[in-house]
């Protein structure tokens, strides 16, 4: 039987973490509890963050949007600030897991689990999200792409907690596009996903674009070269075709039970064609 701590104040949390160097921390538990079920030996000590109210909710000032790490996916979907400015995130959240998972799972949890298939991650990468990491005596900031190191690996020391996610409001993008390819339409781990922020000029040229792919590498992948390459290109099959080949060369998918690397590579490129629906 594991001990479970449920601190309600940060000071309480820091104390628990100090006293229990092996403690395993979780928020909604939608990833951790599933993994623990299949393990014969359970960790001695679990720390559930769900009572730390300071880490919940969405706020904004003139420049930034702040999302508490313990905000659930459902709360984000319901939030007017996110609905107004972060469509890309809501598109992804709608396809994350299932209603019960969205009710329990949190944004912080999705980030710290660091699955290359995590549905919120590709949007956060192209939103240039900054993460605030708190500990007893300090707070630091890190861009999401340097915080996530690999599958299940993040730059988080014992005694540190991912406390919130910060997203700049500018620049504005007209197109917020997210497509998840899973083996079914709910409760599916993505096989490939692509998140896009884009502006298209009145003469159908891509004027600004950010792209990120999930499930085709150890982390979410974003390629500056492709984004630069696409700026100024017409939003047509011809205009995208070379970029599709570039994507297919750059992604680093693996074979697993869900799909072959070959399929993932093929589809990662082809998903770009879906952007044609935004042509003017």
């Amino acid at each position: 039987m594991s001990k479970v701590f449920m601190p309600a104040q940060p000071d309480e949390l820091w104390g628990i973490l100090d006293e229990n160097p092996e403690a395993v921390v979780y928020a909604g538990g939608t990833d951790l509890l599933v993994r623990l079920r299949s393990r014969f030996t359970k960790p001695d000590c679990l720390v559930c963050l769900e009572r730390l109210d300071d880490l919940k909710g969405v706020k904004a000032d003139d420049d930034d949007i702040f999302i508490g790490a313990l905000t659930t996916h459902r709360e984000m979907l319901n939030d007017p600030i996110i609905q107004k400015d972060l469509h890309i995130l809501t598109h992804a959240l709608k396809q994350l897991g299932s209603p019960p998972i969205r009710n329990m799972g949190t944004l912080g949890g999705n980030i710290v689990t660091a699955s290359p298939a995590g549905d919120t991650l590709a949007p956060l990468y192209i939103l240039n999200a900054q993460l605030e990491i708190g500990s007893r005596n300090s707070t630091r900031r890190a861009p999401i792409e340097s915080f996530i190191l690999g599958p299940g690996k993040v730059d988080l020391a014992h005694g540190e907690i991912l406390s919130r996610v910060v997203v700049r409001k500018v620049p504005k993008f007209e197109v917020h596009h997210y497509e998840k390819v899973g083996k079914r339409n709910a409760l599916a781990c993505s096989v490939v996903s692509m998140a896009t922020l884009m502006n298209v000029s009145s003469n159908n040229l891509i004027s600004n674009i950010r792209l990120a792919w999930g499930s085709v590498g150890p982390t979410v992948l974003r390629f500056g070269d492709i984004e630069h390459f696409l700026v100024g290109k017409p939003l047509t099959v011809e205009g995208l075709s070379e970029a599709i080949n570039m994507i297919q060369e750059l992604v680093k998918p693996i074979d697993d039970i869900r799909a072959t690397a070959c399929y993932r590579r093929e589809v990662a490129g082809r998903l770009l064609l879906r952007l044609l629906k935004y042509s003017v």
């Binding site: 599933v34 299932s98 083996k183 079914r184 339409n185 709910a186 409760l187 599916a188 781990c189 039970i257 869900r258």
Partner: peptide, 16 residues
């Protein structure tokens, strides 16, 4: 057996 549980053995959901 490769598909040992519901995370890998995928039955259609109401969304499918």
């Amino acid at each position: 057996i490769i598909t040992k549980d519901f995370s890998t053995y995928l039955a259609p959901t109401s969304m499918d």
